[in-house]
Amino acid sequence: MCTSPGADVLPALLRCRRAESDPVTRLDLVLVLALGRAVRREPAGDRSDETGALLRSLLGSPEPQLRLAAVHALAAGDPDFAAGRLELALDAVRHPSVALWRHTNSVGSGVRGVQH
Rank of each mutant, 00 (worst) to 15 (best):
W101A: 14
E20H: 06
V71A: 10
S4H: 11
D91I: 06
W101K: 04
S106K: 04
F81H: 14
A83G: 14
R94Q: 12
R112F: 10
A53P: 00
A12W: 03
L66R: 09
P43V: 03
C2E: 14
V32R: 10
L54Q: 07
R17C: 12
P79A: 15
R41A: 14
L88T: 13
D22L: 09
A83H: 10
L14S: 05
L31H: 10
G108F: 08
L66T: 03
V32M: 10
L10W: 01
E50N: 05
N105H: 09
A38Y: 01
D49Q: 14
D80G: 07
R40C: 03
C16R: 08
R15Q: 12
T25N: 10
D78L: 08
L55D: 02
C16F: 00
L74N: 03
N105V: 09
S109R: 14
N105G: 13
L13M: 06
P23Y: 06
S48A: 14
G60F: 09
R94A: 13
A76N: 08
G60V: 01
S4R: 15
R94T: 09
T104R: 03
S57K: 06
L66K: 03
R56N: 04
D49C: 06
V32E: 13
G110F: 11
P43F: 02
D28W: 00
T51V: 07
V114F: 02
S57Y: 03
S57Q: 09
A76K: 11
L88R: 02
E50S: 05
L74C: 11
L68R: 11
P96K: 05
C2W: 04
G110L: 12
E42N: 04
A53R: 10
L68C: 11
S61R: 04
F81N: 07
S97V: 03
L29M: 08
R94H: 13
A83D: 13
G84Q: 06
S106R: 06
Q115P: 04
H72K: 13
A89C: 14
L35K: 01
G110T: 11
D78G: 10
G52V: 02
Q115W: 07
H116I: 10
S57I: 07
R26S: 03
A69T: 03
G77A: 13
G84M: 03
D91R: 15
P79G: 11
W101G: 06
L35F: 09
D78W: 08
L31Q: 08
G77P: 08
D78N: 14
G45E: 02
W101Y: 15
G84Y: 04
L66P: 00
R56G: 01
R102F: 02
L55I: 07
L88Q: 08
R15I: 06
A89D: 00
R26M: 06
D46R: 14
V39N: 00
E20P: 05
G60H: 12
D46H: 10
C16N: 02
A70G: 13
P11N: 06
R41Q: 15
C16L: 05
A70Q: 11
D8H: 01
L100G: 05
V30N: 05
L31G: 15
A7F: 04
A76F: 11
Q115T: 15
T25F: 07
A38M: 01
